[in-house]
Design a binder for these strands. Structure first.
Lengths: 98, 98
DNA sequence: ATTATATTTCAATAAATATTGAAATATGGT
DNA sequence: ACCATATTTCAATATTTATTGAAATATAAT
């Protein structure tokens, strides 16, 4: 995984609300959750939530799928795995040498 | 690991320069690196680097140790492990259920 | 067509963060 | 004491991000 993208994803996850959104989605599983459901959990104004969801979407941490009036947010687990992989990829030096 | 701290650490790592600093340190291993050495790698002004190092320090991702005039930055691997652990902790739902 | 629901876009403001030159501090060598 | 090296603090400015009410859009139900 590329450095810049990793930094961007970390930055997006590095915000309380967005981290909460993302973790909700991960817990929810493959189907994801409607924006409205997320909002019920999080006490933020609609536009604020929309903004944060778009940022997560912008770095590929979630995608959206519409079902009628309901817009689902779906976590992209591969993106998360890439990211944790990236973070751990330099650890070996330290772990192995002791 | 607590949500707020995780978000803070993610935010600090979510900046190109800081991520580069941190990864340099991880690669360097237990002894860490002098601030000056970091600067040689990174093309940033001293005060800028100092600022970023302090932010990483502020969330426990590194500590410092002085040897004479030289100030070493030492990566805190436990903090990183806590963080990756936190990120992965909600994954199980998704991974197990398929 | 009208109405209700779900979510977004717009526009404005507030708050946080990044960047850097210049000056200050700390340490060690002469 | 003086000088050089290593790094930080200060102060100012620029940039980015967050937040929200109001208005707009999209979809579905009647």
């Amino acid at each position: 995984m590329e450095h810049e993208l990793a930094a961007q994803r970390l930055a997006e996850l590095g915000h309380t609300t967005r981290l909460a959104v993302f973790r909700l989605l991960v817990r929810a599983g493959r189907d994801g959750l409607p924006v409205g459901d997320i909002q019920k959990h999080l006490d933020v104004a609609g536009p604020t939530l929309s903004h944060h969801i778009n940022r997560l979407k912008g770095v590929g941490l979630l995608t959206q799928r519409r079902e009628g009036r309901t817009l689902y947010c779906v976590p992209q687990m591969d993106a998360l795995r890439e990211l944790t992989g990236f973070l751990e990829s330099e650890c070996c030096t330290l772990n192995v040498s002791e």
